[in-house]
Write a protein that binds this DNA or RNA. Structure first.
Ligand code: SF4
Ligand code: SF4
Lengths: 157, 157
DNA sequence: CTATTATGGATATTGCAGGTCCATAAAGAT
DNA sequence: ATCTTTATGGACCTGCAATATCCATAATAG
């Protein structure tokens, strides 16, 4: 139950791009050296960020990366989901276990007309999904620009 | 970024124990059959739950497991942390990277007298820790008994 | 004593995060 | 045109943690 290292790298990379001049391209060399990771590995992460529309990339001499949109439009959630994916944190795997059946013995009849329930009514899943939602919501409210602003405010205090 | 299957099993096992009669012992055989997993594997999980004081175990004939405390004193967080551990979801691994140094160029001098800062002032880490805290807090507010109560209320509606 | 049941160590299996290498494509520089 | 620089994506390797099984041992009821 931990964020992958790649997620950390993605966050740090995006933050650095946000600090760079608008329109300025940052190469993988510079980025990798700054973060202290190999170029080949970081390039994979950057590639994903590009596919998901977080950054833009330019090949060729004096190419590199830049943010694809304003830093205040990029949330922590955006960056994290690029690397971590978008699957639910808790998935029901034992849907055919006796216990699951028990939990829904009453609901089975109720869902006769719908044809599917998929654990929608299960309170265990509801709690787990709720917990995830708390975190997701928080991460969605915090942007990259937000961090930069706060950092600036702190250093000039 | 997913909860392990073991976490799911632990939750389901505890819930079943909570539904059983107080003072009644449930064997690993019954429990494993109910959840649809092997006895040997589930016993490992149960053993952890015992070590952390969630359940009590009795060896010998007519032995088995029972809750070590009332179900309304057992939170989701308690059970989850038994399996998942208690490490932070985001850990700073690149503390010696150039970027980290940059982030703390001003703070370095400020922390001369303390001797350590360990990223306390970093806003990236602060956001990530904040997100985790949101989830942890939510999981701490939801007990096993809470799910049972809601389930009972739903079935009699 | 015997049957039953949990425990913990050892060990296999598997999936995946972490990481490298290289052939290719795109774009600027000459 | 050609060369150099730079990103891209496929193939691949590696190590470790989650998953899973087996067994020898201990504890307990009858
Ligand atoms: S969490 Fe609920 S829906 Fe999912 S398997 Fe368990 S009982 Fe079924
Ligand atoms: S998250 Fe902050 S404290 Fe952690 S390594 Fe990055 S800059 Fe340093």
């Amino acid at each position: 139950m931990q964020f992958s290292k790649s997620t950390g790298h993605a966050l740090h990379a995006v933050i650095h791009l946000a600090r760079a001049e608008r329109g300025q391209h940052v190469g993988i060399k510079e980025l990798a050296a700054l973060l202290g990771v190999s170029e080949s590995y970081l390039s994979k992460i950057m590639s994903k960020l590009r596919q998901d529309g977080i950054v833009r990339a330019m090949t060729g001499a004096s190419g590199g990366y830049e943010l694809a949109k304003s830093a205040n439009l990029i949330t922590f959630l955006d960056v994290i989901q690029v690397v971590e994916g978008r699957q639910k944190m808790y998935e029901c795997f034992n849907l055919d276990s006796q216990q699951h059946q028990l939990f829904f013995e009453s609901e089975e009849q109720a869902s006769q007309h719908t044809g599917h329930h998929e654990g929608n009514g299960c309170l265990v899943k509801k709690v787990m999904d709720g917990a995830e939602q708390q975190m997701v919501h928080y991460l969605q409210q915090h942007t990259i620009q937000g961090v930069l602003d706060s950092a600036a405010a702190t250093s000039t205090k």
